[in-house]
């Protein structure tokens, strides 16, 4: 993957396939240049055996195929930039109420092998376009400030009949996020 934001898009698609109703995408950057990416969903989760195998591309069998290369690619991006990847998951079979998966990856952004974050706004817009019925909370905190988008707030304004996937709404979302990123540059 050329951009870390593409890995984020890819991993979040796993949450969509897992039937998530809420997806949290969080990016936290500290003063020292450590970046922590967290993607949390309330989908059907995975059992412990599957969690063990999803990071290994050669362990992928037909039943786990929907995970495929996505996690291994994120793991690679993280480890080559001096970080690590972890997955915590509670399967629906174990706990139907609190099930879900959290994928966490860290990166040293000062590493020469750090994959640039790229266009994360594009990633958020594409996710909402693909599944406007899901609620997304996007948070990107940096030492300079925070960029935030909560689709629940937008839904409160738009009501039931207008989908977040409408082009004009997506354009508003893109504009809002871009403005917030611009403000951080000042």
């Amino acid at each position: 993957m050329k951009e870390l934001s593409l890995n984020i898009l890819d991993i979040a698609q796993n949450s969509v396939s897992a039937g998530a109703k809420n997806i949290l995408i969080s990016l936290e950057e500290d003063e020292k240049g450590l970046l922590t990416l967290t993607i949390t969903d309330d989908g059907k989760g995975m059992d412990p055996e599957m969690v063990k195998t999803v990071t290994d591309p050669f362990c992928t069998t037909r039943t786990t195929r929907k995970v495929g290369m996505g996690i291994p690619l994120l793991k690679l991006a993280s480890e080559q930039a001096g970080g690590s990847l972890s997955i915590v998951s509670v399967s629906k079979k174990t706990d139907p109420v609190n099930c879900g998966t959290t994928v966490k990856a860290t990166f040293d952004t000062t590493s020469i092998d750090f994959t640039p974050l790229g266009d994360v706004v594009d990633t958020v817009v594409v996710l909402i376009q693909g599944h406007p019925e899901i609620d997304y909370l996007f948070l990107h905190s940096t030492p300079k400030g925070v960029v935030r988008l909560d689709t629940k707030e937008l839904r409160d304004v738009l009501g039931e009949e207008i989908s977040l996937g409408e082009f004009e709404i997506l354009a508003w979302i893109r504009g809002s996020l871009e403005e917030q990123y611009q403000a951080l540059k000042k």
Binding site: L6, L9, D122, T123, V125, V126
Partner: peptide, 15 residues
């Protein structure tokens, strides 16, 4: 928009 599509450049195509 699976891993293969995204890696090959599907995001700008979709947009």
């Amino acid at each position: 928009m699976a891993t293969c599509g995204i890696a090959a450049g599907a995001r700008p195509v979709l947009n």
